[in-house]
């Protein structure tokens, strides 16, 4: 038995977006972007709901959602680490940064830590090439990274989250 629709998201949150865009031709990507802003990712029942409201097949909507790297089908952690894989970062050692993150957190590209704190996502280029290697965590850019510096940043964030959890 397929369990695709088992998860229940609050679809009413999306009604404003659908009222505005559902009937506007060519706005599927915009709708999915706004849905992801609301839910943090694209739950499968939201995909079905968007398909119905826009008159598309679920396959078409899922096809668009899986084509673009911006869309996520899984929830993300409190901190989203966007690790730059651009050419300048590559030349300046981004691979060592990637392995430092993997070693510290035990996650690879696209994965989330078990405690739900960190998600690692590889991105093509953040455009801060002169600060390479670079990563961005929840909108804040960290540049000229070394493996040690990276690990310290992650540990600080974890401590911060733990303190917030206790308070």
């Amino acid at each position: 038995m397929c369990e695709c629709n088992k998860k229940k998201s609050d679809l009413s949150l999306l009604s404003g977006v659908l009222d505005e865009y559902a009937k506007v031709e060519g706005s599927l990507i915009t709708i999915l972007q706004k849905a992801q802003d609301i839910y943090g990712y694209l739950p499968i029942d939201v995909i079905y709901h968007v398909a119905e409201a826009t008159g598309n097949s679920p396959a078409k909507v899922l096809g668009v959602a899986t084509f673009y790297t911006q869309f996520r089908l899984q929830p993300i952690g409190k901190y989203l680490i966007m690790q730059c894989q651009g050419t300048a970062c590559h030349v300046n050692g981004s691979e060592r940064i990637a392995s430092a993150i993997t070693e510290e957190l035990g996650i690879k590209d696209g994965e989330t830590t078990e405690d739900g704190l960190f998600t690692l996502s590889n991105v093509a280029c953040l455009g801060c090439c002169s600060l390479s290697p670079v990563m961005m965590i929840n909108g804040e850019t960290y540049g000229t990274l070394t493996p040690e510096k990276t690990i310290n940043i992650l540990r600080e964030l974890r401590e911060k989250a733990e303190k917030e959890g206790q308070a």
């Binding site: 031709e25 060519g26 706005s27 599927l28 990507i29 915009t30 999915l32 972007q33 096809g63 668009v64 084509f67 673009y68 790297t69 911006q70 869309f71 093509a124």
Partner: peptide, 25 residues
């Protein structure tokens, strides 16, 4: 403004047009 959704191939003009129309680029 139309915000892209992350696909290198959309730099190709016809793929970009497909993406503008809300489809896979």
């Amino acid at each position: 403004i139309k915000a892209g959704a992350g696909a290198f191939v959309c730099g190709e003009e016809t793929a970009l047009i497909e993406s503008l129309e809300g489809k896979r680029g």
